[in-house]
Amino acid sequence: MQDREGMILSKAVYADMSRCIACHACEVACEKAHGAAKIFVDVVRDRVSVPVSCCQCEKATCVMVCYPGALSQDNGSITFDSDRCTGCDLCVLACPFGAVQLDTAGVRRCDLCPDREVPACVVTCPSQALIWDDVENIAREIRKRAAVKMGRSLASGRVL
């Protein structure tokens, strides 16, 4: 499995699970924008909600198995050409995260909403659990949020 740190994409969607409230707004927004949802939210052990969608792997196995060349990767970004798709299902079977689906409309995987300034799932997210930014900025944001949390635990320690 490729970790996301190896991505060469300039921008990405990052999910901060500590903020996700399992409201499914991203799914419905995605469905409205694309006809079918390409992001999937599910709750683990009644306590943590985890959105899963295409994480734009640097070494994308879905692209590797796509023999007709419907999925292609250029400069990190993965594109889909429905005219070339045969519906073989191999990309679905080749995704390590189970984030690719196939239906009559073709391959369903996140395309980061190329027509929008910010992907629909990110704009709509009520709790700002989804972040759309430069990869470097995301890393910085994660560190910032982690620092706040650490500070908080110290602060709550003082309360008692």
């Binding site: 409201c23 499914h24 707004a25 799914e27 419905v28 927004a29 409205k32 704009v123 709509t124 997210c125 009520p126 700002q128």
Partner: peptide, 12 residues
């Protein structure tokens, strides 16, 4: 208030 965001019901 919502800064652009909407819950699933708003989206629907």
């Amino acid at each position: 208030v919502n800064e652009g965001a909407l819950c699933p019901k708003g989206n629907a």
